[in-house]
Amino acid sequence: MNTKKLIFSVFTLCILIILSFLRWDNLESSADLHYKYDRWAGQKWVEFYPPLAASSNSMEFPLIYMDEIHPNDINKYLGKQALSGELVNKWIERTKLTDGYIGLLLLNILVIIYSFFKVFILRVKKIG
C-alpha cells in the first residue's frame, strides 16, 4: 500500500511540475513593456521596466479591460484601477492560485518523503 502511495505521489508531483511550466504564456514585448498571460487565472499581465530607473526592478500589474498599454498612460491606469478595487482583486486571485499551488506541491513532497521512509523502514525490518 505504501509503495502505491509513493508511486501515486511521484506521479502527482510530475503533473504539478508540468503545470507550473504551463502557467505563463509570454506574449509580445517591447523595450519597456513585457506582456504575459496567466493561464490559471485567465488574466493578461504586463511588466513595466522604467527606462530611466536606477535599478532593473520592474512593476508588474494586470491589464483589466485592455490588451496593451502605453508607458505614458500607466500612472493614470493604475490610479483608476486601484480606486475601483479591481487591481487588488486580480492580485488576490493570483496570490490565492500561487499559494494553493505551493501548498499542494509542499504537501505532495511531504507525502513522498513520508512514504519513502515508510517503505524503506518496512524493507529494513523485513531484512533484519
Rank of each mutant, 00 (worst) to 15 (best):
D99N: 14
L87G: 08
T3K: 12
I127Y: 15
P50Y: 01
R123G: 00
Q81E: 13
H34G: 05
Q81A: 06
E47V: 00
F120Y: 10
D99C: 13
V124F: 14
K76C: 03
P62C: 06
C14P: 00
L33Y: 02
W24E: 12
L122E: 15
L78Q: 05
L83E: 15
K4G: 04
I7M: 05
K125A: 11
K76F: 13
G100D: 07
D99A: 15
S30M: 06
I112A: 00
N26L: 10
Y114K: 11
K4R: 12
L87Y: 01
N75K: 10
G103H: 13
S29W: 05
V111Q: 07
I18Y: 11
E47H: 11
L63S: 01
N2R: 09
C14M: 10
F61T: 01
H34T: 03
A54N: 10
K118C: 03
K36P: 03
N89A: 15
S56H: 12
C14D: 10
L27E: 04
A82T: 15
L33D: 09
G103C: 13
E86W: 07
V88Q: 14
F116W: 09
Y65R: 12
T12K: 07
S55H: 07
D38K: 14
K126G: 03
K76L: 12
N75T: 13
L104T: 04
Q81F: 04
G100F: 06
D32P: 00
L33T: 06
Y65T: 00
M66F: 00
L122G: 08
L19S: 10
Y49S: 13
I127W: 15
I69C: 02
I109A: 10
S30A: 08
Y35R: 05
D73F: 07
P51M: 00
L106F: 11
P50I: 05
D73N: 14
F8K: 12
W45A: 02
M59V: 07
F116D: 02
I92R: 12
T95M: 14
Y65I: 00
W91M: 07
E93R: 07
H34D: 11
T12V: 14
I74M: 04
N26Y: 09
R39N: 11
N72K: 14
L19Y: 06
V111A: 14
D38P: 01
V10A: 05
I127E: 15
S29E: 14
I18D: 08
Y35S: 01
S84H: 05
T95I: 12
